[in-house]
């Protein structure tokens, strides 16, 4: 697969990245072993990084038992972890293509700013969470509704370092999709305990996290 960005997408990214403040590092994890879209994921990260001198790439071509992969808790490939003003739990598993390219671009902007736009009452709830939360958002690249759920998970990860927000491309990880019975996207799984489908409002999403950590 050749990764090419149409002119209007390039303009969109350029415009978005004019808002970057702090440096952002994309930690890209690839492997040579049975990885369908590792090369393309790395290529997307490199193309994105060309848009701003504030974005750099740290590539780790490594297995999941390597020291670096363990530090980032990477258990599958390909993966991108977005670190900006702080080391946030913003992660993409599988290729962030199609509609998810926008999720990656927006996550980079938020990570660089160290803040995100979210209603104040939701912000208050998310910031107050004191337990570890793992959000997995299953998507397909052709799903126009999915980025809303991915963005919410990543916004929450910006606000609270206890939160890990993962985008998971459902087709690339069939075992996981089967484990969580992903038959519609976006499907959200929180701490393996609470599951729901759909692009729901941020407050509803936050309430589901509270339900999961009860």
């Amino acid at each position: 697969m050749v990764v090419e960005l149409p002119p209007d997408v390039r303009r969109y990214i350029k415009d978005k990245f004019s808002k970057l403040v702090n440096p952002v590092t994309l930690h890209v994890f690839t492997t040579k072993n049975h990885c369908l879209y590792c090369n393309e994921t790395l290529e997307i990260a490199k193309i994105i990084a060309e848009f701003s001198h504030l974005i750099k790439i740290e590539e780790c071509e490594c297995t999941t038992d390597s020291q670096t992969a363990k530090r980032f808790n990477i258990d599958k490939h390909p993966a991108i972890v977005v670190h900006g003003k702080e080391e946030y739990g913003i992660r993409f598993f599988g290729i962030p293509s199609g509609y998810e390219l926008g999720s990656l671009v927006e996550a980079i902007v938020d990570a660089s700013r160290g803040d995100t736009e979210i209603p104040p009452d939701v912000k208050e709830i998310v910031k107050s969470i004191g337990k570890k939360v793992h959000i997995q958002v299953f998507v397909t690249p052709t799903c126009p509704y999915c980025p809303i759920a991915v963005r919410t998970a990543h916004k929450f990860a910006i606000l609270n370092r206890n939160i890990l927000g993962d985008m998971i491309e459902a087709i690339e990880f069939p075992d996981l999709s089967q484990k969580y019975m992903v038959m519609a996207v976006p499907k959200i799984v929180i701490n393996d305990k609470v599951m729901f489908e759909g692009a729901v409002p941020e407050m509803f999403f936050a309430q589901k996290i509270l339900e999961a950590i009860e």
Binding site: T140, P141, T142, C143, P144, Y145, C146, A170, I171, S177, V182, M183, A184, V185
Partner: peptide, 12 residues
């Protein structure tokens, strides 16, 4: 398994 969005859920 019931879907109203082929473009979203078709790939599954």
């Amino acid at each position: 398994g019931v879907s109203y969005c082929a473009v979203c859920d078709g790939p599954l």
